[in-house]
Write a protein that binds this DNA or RNA. Sequence first.
DNA 1: TCTGGGGTCCTAGGACCC
DNA 2: TCTGGGGTCCTAGGACCC
Length: 433
Amino acid sequence: MSAPRIACLDLDTFFVSVERLLDPSLEGKPVVVGAAPGHRGVVTACSYEVRALGVRSGMAIREAVRLAPRAIYLPTRHGVYAPYSRRVREVLERNAPQVQAASIDEFYLDFSGCERLYHAAGDVDGDATIERTARAITAAIKREIGLPASVGIGATRAIAKIASGVAKPAGVRMVRGGEERGFLAPLPARKFPGIGPVTEERLRRACVTTLGDLVGLPPGPVRARFGGLVEIVEAEMGGAGASYLARDRPAFLEHDPEGATGGSISNERTFAHDVGDPDAVERQLLALVERVCWRARSRGIRARTVTLRLRWADFVTVTRGRTLATPTFQDADVWPAARALLRAAQDERPAVPVRLVGAKLSGLVLATQLELPLAAPPPGAVARATVDNAVDEVRDRYGFDAIRLGATEGRQRWLDARPAAPEVAPARQPRRR
DNA sequence: TCTGGGGTCCTAGGACCC
DNA sequence: TCTGGGGTCCTAGGACCC
């Protein structure tokens, strides 16, 4: 039997909690963080007061306003929340041997290897010690930072994560070794990480509502249809999380820079109103290309593949990609490819207005791993690269929007005038965080 | 005037090579 | 003049997560 050793700590309604720290008058009131009412967008986070009215994160803001017209609507301010997340992490690192951030408001703690410590304390299996530690951690986060948090504890990451949801708000829930099946079986299938709305509906049509229903499917075609999923849930019920969330991967590319080729850098924008003018879409795409390239440069990462994302007014969405011969982080290399992809896609449905456009870089490689070309840069290239570097430095310090580049047509000529050679300027050092 | 934005992972088919 | 596989790369789409 596997003893619980993984904890999942989740900050309750994190963005709302931070907004309340900054403005205590919001305490106890219905609060929605997300897009502005009347605009296109969704709910990013919401307080329990509005959840009681049916509001959920991910819901269209329009729908939230309909359900909770008197709630207080606040814009999402990512830059404000990140420092609080870092402070939480510091508390965790003081109290747990291993900490991994899964997102801005979710952390995994691994207590493996602490058995001798527990034994010395007279705690045979360690359960009591881990649970006590979890309570001490949530108390410290509340006392030192002011944020409520919930913790789930179990043998695997999946069990711990599900338990943290059950523990909310501001609770601790431990699933002891051997209790996994009894804990999971009555839960709605949707609670299992990886089962989303689509799979939930497929399961519902097979008369499967709970995780117990799922593993209880009799042998036959229906069970076979969900075969992989049944195996995964079965393993979790046995406390053996050799699958799924237990697949430990580095959480962040920054932590695994050696030869990292996975990952992607993308930005996309939904227009306030659907856009019928192809030139206007092109201008927005150029701004997005400049943004993703800047992000790649400031991380010292080049990309081999450029992908365009386009969503038309009727919500039909396509992605179109192209892989370049040489990895790059230069606007002048990425832009022609992105523009060609956009024009080809626009040609497929010329009369339909565009709702969203996006640019993505993938096939990432560390810039320092590349061999530099031996050829001397062509005339003018160094001067242009110097200007680009100066723009980058301002943006690294003050953010992408600190500098607006000139009229797009002039900018396009500037890009077209640049050599397509990927390396004209010395590689910049990755930005320190 | 329904449906954000940043990601990860998986699948599947076709090209191409051996 | 009929028929293999396996492996890798590329592309496109889709489910899911926070």
